[in-house]
Computed example of a mutant assay.
Amino acid sequence: MTSPQRARFGTRLFLGTTLVVLVCLVTATLVAVVIAPGMFHEHLHQAGISGDDGLTDHIEMAFRGTLLRAWAPAAAAAVVVAIVLSWWVARRVERAVGELSTSTGRIAAGRYETRVDASGLGREFAELADAVNELARRLNETETTRRRMVADLGHEMRTPIATIESHLEAVEDGVRAADADTIGVLRTGTQRLRRLAEDLSAVSRVQEGIVQEGIDRIRPEPTGARCLVDAAVAVATPSYDAAGVALAATGDDIPLTVDPARVGQVLGNLFDNARRHTPPGGTVTVTTTHRGPDVVFTVADTGCGIAAEHLSHVFDRFYRADDARTRRDGGSGIGLTIVRVLVEAHGGSVTASSAGPGAGAVFTVTLPAAGPASAEPSDRPANLDS
C-alpha cells in the first residue's frame, strides 16, 4: 500500500478536497437534524403555538420531514458536483506537475532540448514553464560552449606538445643537438602553452572576480581618452610594424574617469584582434568621440570582416569566426571575452559590426565619462593578462 508520503500529488489533492466536502456535509447534517428543529420549536413557542393537543408536535414533525426532503437531494447534488470537480482539478494539476517533473528530469539528465508546455492552469504555472524552458536553453548554450572549449583546448595543446615531444626525442636519439635553434623551438612551444594557461586564468579571474564581487577591482581615476589610446598604440606599434599593418589614432583627449590599466587592456585586446585579422598593407584606426555623457572608442580595420551570423557571438568565450586563421595566428578566442567583461564592469558596452566578409570590422566601446557609479578603489592585484 502506498504510504501518505509517497502518494501521488493528484491523489492527495483529491483526498484533501473530498475530506473538506465531507466535513461540510457533516456540519450541514448537524445543523439540519439537531440545531434547526430546536430553533423552529423556540419560534413556535414565541408565536404562542403551544399546548398538549399535539398541534405543536405535528407542526414540528412536518418541518423536519420537509427540511430533510429538501435538504437531502441538495446536499447529495452538492457533494457529487464538489467531488467530481475536485477530481477533475486534481487530475489536471497532477498531469501538469507530472509533465513538469518529467521534463526537469530529462533536463537534469542532459537532454537540454526538452521544453515544458504551458498547462493552462494559470499565470503561475505558465511562468514556471517559461522559467524551466529558459533554464534549459541556457544550459544548452553552456554545454555547447563547454564542448567547443574542450575541443579548442585539445587542439591548442596538441600542436605545442607534439612539437616539444618530437624535439626532445630527437635530442635524446642524437638526431638533433641541444643547440640554440632546438632550445628556441622548445621555448616557443612552452610559451604557447603558458599563454593559453594565462588566458584561461585571466578570463576566469575577470568573470568570477569582477562579475561576482562587483566592480571593487576596478580602480578608476581621472584621465584622458587620447592619453589612453596613445599609450595603447605605443605598446602595439612593434607588432603592427612586424605584421605590415598601419595603426592610426584620431580624436580629442576627452576627460573621463576609468581604470587606466583595464581600459588599456581593452584597447590592447582590440588592437591585437584587429591586427590578426588585417592583412599586410591594411590599416587599423582608433577614434575617440564624445556622445552625451559617454566617451566612445571606435576600432575599425580593413581586414577580413565578420559574417552576419557570427556578429552576436564574437564576444563569447572561445568563439572563433575563423578557426584556421585564429589558431595559426595564436589567438585563443578569449581576448574579446575579456574586453566585454571589463567594459561592462565600467558600466559601459561594446559592440561589433561589419558589412560582411572582406569588408573589415568595427568594434565600438562606450564608457561613461564619469566612471562606474559605485566603483571604489581596491588594493588587490589587478594584473590580468589577455
Rank of each mutant, 00 (worst) to 15 (best):
A109D: 15
A74F: 03
G110E: 14
D181V: 09
L139Q: 12
I107M: 07
V171Q: 00
T104K: 08
I107Y: 06
S119G: 06
A76P: 01
A162F: 06
E94G: 15
L139Y: 10
A126H: 08
I83T: 11
R137K: 03
G174F: 03
I83H: 06
I164E: 14
R111L: 12
R194M: 01
L153S: 11
L121S: 02
G120A: 02
G154Q: 13
I161R: 13
A118L: 03
G174S: 03
V150Y: 15
H167I: 04
V81A: 10
D117E: 11
E169T: 05
T190F: 11
M149Y: 13
L121G: 00
E143F: 13
D199E: 11
T159S: 10
R194D: 09
H155D: 12
L196M: 13
A170W: 07
E143V: 10
V89P: 02
A151S: 05
I161D: 10
T142K: 11
L128F: 12
A202G: 15
R91Y: 06
E143R: 15
A109N: 13
V116T: 05
D130Q: 14
T188Q: 12
N133I: 03
A70D: 04
G154K: 11
V116R: 05
V84E: 08
D181N: 10
P160T: 08
A108N: 12
D117H: 02
E143I: 05
R69N: 04
R138G: 01
R192P: 02
V206S: 09
I107F: 03
E94P: 00
L139M: 11
T104Q: 12
D130G: 03
R106H: 14
F125Y: 14
L153K: 08
R111E: 15
R123I: 08
T163E: 14
T188L: 08
R92V: 00
R111K: 13
E124M: 14
A202D: 08
D117K: 07
W87H: 11
E165T: 12
V206Q: 05
E165C: 03
N140V: 00
R123T: 10
R123Q: 14
V93M: 01
A96P: 07
R92T: 01
Q191L: 04
S103K: 09
L186I: 01
T145V: 04
A109R: 15
T66I: 07
A126S: 15
I83F: 11
E156V: 01
W71Y: 08
L139R: 13
A72F: 02
A75T: 05
G174N: 03
A82K: 04
R148N: 14
S86M: 05
R69E: 06
V132K: 08
A162K: 06
T102Q: 13
A72P: 00
S204H: 07
A78N: 00
E172Q: 04
V116Y: 04
N133C: 02
A131L: 15
D199A: 12
A162C: 01
A202K: 03
V84D: 06
R205A: 01
S166P: 00
T102A: 15
T159P: 01
D117C: 02
L135G: 12
R91S: 05
F125L: 11
